[in-house]
C-alpha cells in the first residue's frame, strides 16, 4: 500500500534502513513535491539491522514483484551488506507456498533536504476519503485549488473555464466515529493556492489511514500526513505564489 501510494510521485529512491526502521525521503522530478515515509521497527514482527544501509530501489520494479504476493502472505525483506539485490519472500502458512524474488538494487545519489521545524498557522484533520473526494471533484473544474483556513472552517475553492466550485468543512466532532470528525487548530488565518494534480496524486495514500492531517502556513509548503499505527507517509507540496 505504501509503495502504491508513492510510486507515481517518485521513480527511484533509497530505503534507508537503520535501528529505527525503514525510512525514505524523495522529491518528484519537478522538485515541487516531496514524500517522506517511516515504517517503525515496532510495525514489523521481526526486524534486524546490523548496519545502516540504503537500498536503492526502482519503485516500479518493486511494485511488479509485490503484485506476486497474496494479500495475507507474510512478507520478508532481506538484504546483505553492500547488497546488489533485495530479496523478497512471500509465505502462505496455509498451503506452505514459498515465493522467492530478488530485485536488482541501484546506486542512488540522493540529496536529503533539511525540512525546517514549522509552527503551522493551521492544522486540520479530516476524513481521508472526504479529502480525496474534494480534490478529485475540484480537479474536474480547475488545475489549482485555494485552501483557506479560518475560524469558520476550511474552504477549498477553485475556478476554471466551465465555472467555479467551493467546498467548506466546518469543525465537527463525531463522538461515535472520531475518524469522521473534522478538527481545526488555528493560530492564524491561512490562505494558499496549490496544484490539484499533486494533491490528487497524494490521495493514493488514502487507504493507509482513515484520517489525513493538513498543516498550513502562509507562503510555506503544505504538509499532508497519513499516520499509520507504526509509521507515517508525509507529503510536502510547494505553493503557487502570486497572481
Amino acid at each position: 500500500q505504501v509503495v502504491d501510494a508513492i510510486k507515481d510521485l517518485v521513480q527511484d529512491c533509497n530505503f534507508d534502513c537503520n535501528d529505527s526502521g525503514i525510512a525514505l525521503q524523495a522529491m518528484d522530478n519537478s522538485h515541487v513535491a516531496l514524500v517522506a515515509m517511516h515504517l517503525k521497527t515496532e510495525g514489523f514482527s521481526q526486524y534486524r539491522c546490523d548496519r545502516n544501509i540504503a537500498l536503492g530501489v526502482n519503485l516500479a520494479s518493486l511494485q511488479k514483484v509485490l503484485r506476486a504476493a497474496q494479500n495475507e502472505d507474510l512478507l520478508t525483506l532481506k538484504a546483505e551488506d553492500a547488497p546488489d539485490v533485495l530479496s523478497l519472500v512471500f509465505e502462505n502458512s496455509e498451503n506452505d507456498r514459498i515465493s522467492e524474488y530478488d530485485i536488482k538494487l541501484m546506486d542512488i545519489d540522493q540529496e536529503h533536504l533539511g525540512i525546517p521545524d514549522t509552527e503551522y498557522g493551521a492544522t486540520v484533520t479530516l476524513p481521508s476519503a472526504e479529502f480525496q473526494r474534494i480534490c478529485r471533484d475540484l480537479m474536474l473544474i480547475s488545475e489549482s485549488v485555494g485552501i483557506e483556513a479560518t475560524k469558520e472552517g476550511i474552504k477549498f475553492s477553485c475556478a476554471g473555464d466551465i465555472g467555479s466550485g467551493a467546498v467548506t468543512l466546518r469543525q465537527n466532532a463525531n463522538v461515535d466515529k472520531p475518524e469522521l470528525s473534522t478538527t481545526i487548530e488555528l493560530q492564524e488565518p491561512v490562505a494558499l493556492t496549490f496544484s490539484l494534480k499533486y494533491l490528487v496524486n497524494f490521495c493514493k495514500a488514502t487507504g493507509l489511514s482513515s484520517t489525513v492531517t493538513l498543516s498550513l502556513s502562509n507562503e510555506v509548503p503544505l504538509l499532508i500526513e497519513y499516520k499509520m499505527e507504526h509509521g507515517f507517509v508525509r507529503f510536502y507540496l510547494a505553493p503557487k505564489i502570486g497572481d
Binding site: L113, P221, Y236, A238, P239
Partner: peptide, 14 residues
C-alpha cells in the same frame, strides 16, 4: 495566474 514554486526555495540541502 499564480506561479508554481519549488521546494528548493523553502527546504535546504544539509
Amino acid at each position: 495566474g499564480a506561479r508554481q514554486s519549488t521546494l528548493g526555495s523553502f527546504f535546504t540541502l544539509p
